[in-house]
Design a protein around this nucleic acid. Structure first.
Lengths: 189, 189
DNA sequence: TTTAATTCTAAGCAATCGCTTAGTTATTGT
DNA sequence: ACAATAACTAAGCGATTGCTTAGAATTAAA
């Protein structure tokens, strides 16, 4: 009955996600999105409703990408501190774009940019992702049977904040300083 | 010969700084600045040139405020790990506004928002501040004569990234999680 | 082949962006 | 009192923001 879409939503969202990842939410305009996604504004709005809709789908895309390239590896690891340390090093590579510029973590970038005034849908998405990662850290820490639940909670909180620090610091510090950080971070565990 | 200014530049810049601190650079418009600063756009541009000029002065204002309320205390401390740990706790209080919302660190916020595409003047300002803090950490770590220079460099890098992590995480995590982080950070230094 | 449904292009909407400028008001030396 | 200087108000500049819409193009069922 009707005309067919000339694009695949999952494909164009990946382009949008890259743009938000590089530039942040506010600094990414709908004009930039239509160029990068390769579709007209009409198509953007008919597929995703509004700019926030594009961003929410981009967050989901980021989470899926992080799962495949980052989280699943940790999930399937033998566990323990060493596996989590590898996750930290993997994250730095994950955050690099084609020109080796570090974009940080999209989730961390968004918390830092929007903070408390973030839309509730965006915020719950962020909280949900952070909770997933933290739960995984806890699982992997539990492979050491000597640790009490209190120690594990404390160390998981510590790792979460460290990871956010790594995300911001990777935009500003060189690889040597980041390596120092990661090594020191895991000396404390 | 001529009319007098009806405002004091240092006073209105403090208001501007608060606004940039809460909202970030891009999300702070000149219209918002004129309301908060209580002066007309003409006055803003004649005093500070352009929006970037207001921001650069705001960065200087932030640095001065951080010096008085945060850095001088550490500078005058007895030294050692405990003094730096107090600096971390002090920073969290420093980052709270009147409604106890955490704004993070203006310098960290700016790196995270603008990243590589930050103006060179802004970036050198940021690097300079970070260098100051790191130098101070090194000084205070050196009060322990047992530490080798390599250990001190490594630990200073570690503390710098940790502090940035704390800045971002404070916008998202509760006080207990932040306390866990700080305690773990200093456990093995 | 007609017709109804959907997507496309491209122009345009009001609002806001950073910034400027014309004209008025205040302050000073002469 | 007058002239010179600078700071004020307020309107408006072109460009860009997120978003909408009129009309042409494409699809597939009837």
């Amino acid at each position: 009955m009707a005309r067919k879409k000339e694009y695949i939503e999952e494909e164009v969202i990946e382009k949008a996600m890259e743009l938000f990842w590089r530039n942040g939410y506010e600094a990414t305009s709908v004009r930039m999105l239509e160029k990068e996604m390769g579709i007209n504004q009409f198509s953007i709005y008919s597929s995703f409703g509004n700019k926030k809709g594009v961003f929410l789908k981009s967050l989901a895309c980021y989470r899926a990408k992080a799962k495949v390239e980052l989280i699943d590896k940790l999930k399937n690891s033998s566990g323990g501190i060493q596996s989590i340390k590898e996750y930290f090093y993997d994250f730095i590579n994950f955050s690099k774009d084609s020109t080796r510029t570090k974009k940080g973590c999209l989730i961390t970038n968004t918390v830092n940019e929007l903070g408390e005034k973030a839309d509730t849908e965006i915020m719950s998405n962020i909280i949900s992702f952070a909770t997933n990662v933290k739960t995984l850290f806890i699982e992997k820490l539990e492979s050491n049977k000597l640790k009490t639940p209190e120690m594990i909670t404390k160390q998981a909180n510590y790792l979460m904040v460290s990871l956010q620090g790594l995300s911001v610091a990777s935009k500003m510090f060189d690889q040597k300083q980041l390596d120092d950080f990661i090594e020191s971070t895991f000396e404390n565990l």
